[in-house]
Simulated assay, not measured.
Amino acid sequence: MSVTEQKPREGWFSQLLMAAAGGAVVWAGTVFGLHAYEEQVAVQGIRLALEAQVSGVNQQAADSVKSIDELWQMYAASGLERADFDRVSQPVIDSHFTLLPELIAGLAAILIFFTVNLLVMNWRRNRRYQALVDEHQQSLEMSREQIEQASGKDPVTGLVNASQFEILLDIECRRAVREFTPLSLILLEPDSEYLNDLPEEDHPVMAQLLAKNLQQTVFRPGDVIARISDYRFALLLPATNEQSPQLAERLRQQATEIVLGGQPMLLSLGVSTMQPSAQLSAAHIQQLTEDLLQQAQNNGGNQVSFNTEQSLEVPVTYSD
Rank of each mutant, 00 (worst) to 15 (best):
P204I: 00
Q149R: 15
A226M: 03
Q164Y: 09
W72H: 04
L107A: 15
D63E: 14
I225E: 05
T289D: 08
R144H: 08
R87Q: 12
V92L: 10
Q138R: 15
R144N: 04
L237M: 09
A234E: 06
P155A: 08
H136I: 03
A109G: 10
V120I: 12
N307Y: 13
W12I: 04
F32A: 15
T240H: 07
L107S: 12
H284R: 08
Q90H: 10
D191C: 06
F233V: 03
S268H: 02
R47T: 03
V156H: 13
L48R: 06
A282H: 07
R178P: 05
A49M: 06
D197W: 01
S89G: 01
V31N: 09
V314K: 12
L17V: 10
E201P: 00
I110M: 14
T30F: 02
L140D: 07
M74G: 06
P245S: 02
A283D: 14
A234L: 10
Q130K: 13
N126P: 00
E201G: 00
V224D: 11
L266Q: 15
I186F: 01
A109N: 02
T30A: 06
A19N: 01
Y318L: 09
H284F: 14
G261I: 04
Q303M: 10
A278I: 10
V3H: 13
R175G: 03
F114T: 12
P276S: 04
A105K: 08
I228R: 07
D63N: 15
I104C: 05
A105N: 05
L50V: 01
M18C: 07
G270E: 05
L111C: 11
M74D: 02
S139M: 09
R178K: 13
G222V: 06
D191S: 10
V271F: 06
Q297I: 10
L50P: 00
Q295C: 08
S281H: 13
E166V: 10
E81I: 05
P245C: 06
S2H: 07
G45V: 06
V271G: 04
E51M: 07
T289M: 05
I110G: 08
V133A: 09
P91R: 08
S78D: 05
A248M: 04
Q294T: 09
R174M: 02
E313L: 14
A76H: 15
E70R: 13
